[in-house]
Design a protein around this nucleic acid. Structure first.
Lengths: 233, 233
DNA sequence: CAGTGGTCTAGACCACAAG
DNA sequence: TTGTGGTCTAGACCACTGG
């Protein structure tokens, strides 16, 4: 048993982690309450609280008022993905960024797009296709729909110079969104744009965003074959 | 301007968010320091601190000692993915879970696997192949390497009954790991196991975990075509 | 050097939910 | 009802880093 006091929340967190890993506290076990731990560790309850709250946030503990704190039976691991602006992602790898607007027009989208954006009325949206390049080579094909009603200013922007991605990030903050990841076979158009073969496996990110339940945009990002999205857990 | 005091951190967070969204504080702007905001909001500095810390955590603010707090120029969005135990993921959709161990043997892995696990010496590892089913249909093909030296007890477990996934979660806690997502074309073996066609686009998760820099396991999860990983942001 | 965020403390009250 | 975590407060000291 370690003697001495744990005088910061990281130390408390580390000690609790140890006890979970060494199975002193096993999955499903109820651990002592904050006040008792504070006394044992020789620190304030707020310090224990912060440590335990952090561990609960990363899925290792389950905490409920009155019921106390338990070691999670199945620690649901949480991976945090950073969704950077594409230009930054490319420049971050030390590559030269390129951008090319392929088409821009207003039209009524197919119903799957409506569904994803949770729109009901059949208004025209702005439809963009663009290609992002890394060191001059195709990197990502962007297929985007923008709800003009939600972000009128977009009609006055020259999207052949600044990508819709960046413009929206800076000018159309969203309050909620959802994101999905899939693998798809490249269709003819995608294959041509990304300089790959039809049918190749493409990593796809689909993202929708809303501002107070008003749809802003829906975008499909189709990455060049071999793309790898990576993070730490 | 809202009158009255903001007496909890969520309210402070909401107010700060408003000011960012209404562009009262623009990207790049230095915002008032914690003490000033506490006075303005009529709450303790700790309350402001917690609100701002949370916003910084979600990428909307950049905070540095002495330099102060700025509105992030490019709010790097963070998506949090839950990595559940596979059985729970399937049962959570209301489907019946099935599991089948396809093969289990000890052998020396190919060097790409060594690289991923950051192993140097050429010891034998345990190699598992297993199929997870949802309502009796193939859902996920698991191809896993386990470092026996790191988790000896695994040799005594009957992995045809309990999936390695679940056993490891409960018995081999890790301290760090990394995870990657890609799209790949199904090879012959995968196609056969997942009952799909060779060359179909497969969503793949690769995960490695370590316990204090000792490699525990490396696993490739190959999902049936059409799989969609989704989350909110 | 000095101003900023990072954290701790001791005490207090509150919100929730299990019994 | 009552024990638990959730949070706030006022004050304090510290760590970092920009000028």
């Amino acid at each position: 048993m370690t003697e001495g006091t744990l005088n910061n929340w990281q130390a408390v967190q580390a000690e609790v982690l140890q006890r979970i890993r060494r199975r002193i506290w096993k999955p499903g076990d109820l651990i002592p309450n904050e006040a008792d731990l504070a006394q044992e560790f020789g620190c304030a309850r707020a310090t224990v609280n912060r440590a335990l709250r952090a561990l609960a946030g990363s899925g290792l503990l389950d905490r409920r008022r009155r019921a106390g704190t338990r070691v999670a039976i199945y620690p649901v691991r949480k991976a945090t993905l950073d969704i950077p602006v594409i230009r930054h992602e490319i420049e971050g790898k030390g590559q030269r960024y390129g951008y090319s607007l392929l088409s821009q027009l207003r039209k009524i989208p197919p119903s799957p797009v409506y569904a994803r954006m949770k729109l009901s009325n059949k208004a025209k949206l702005m439809h963009l296709k663009a290609l992002h390049l890394a060191d001059g080579k195709p990197y990502l094909f962007e297929d985007r729909w923008i709800n003009i009603a939600a972000v009128r200013a977009v009609t006055k922007v020259d999207l052949s110079q600044q990508s819709a991605n960046e413009w929206l990030v800076e000018n159309a903050p969203f309050t909620s969104g959802d994101i999905a990841f899939t693998a798809e076979a490249a269709d003819v158009e995608t294959a041509e744009i990304l300089h790959c073969s039809e049918g190749e496996a493409i990593f796809v990110i689909e993202r929708s965003t809303w501002s107070n339940s008003m749809a802003i945009t829906f975008v499909r990002l189709l990455f060049v074959p071999g793309y790898r999205m990576q993070t730490e857990i």
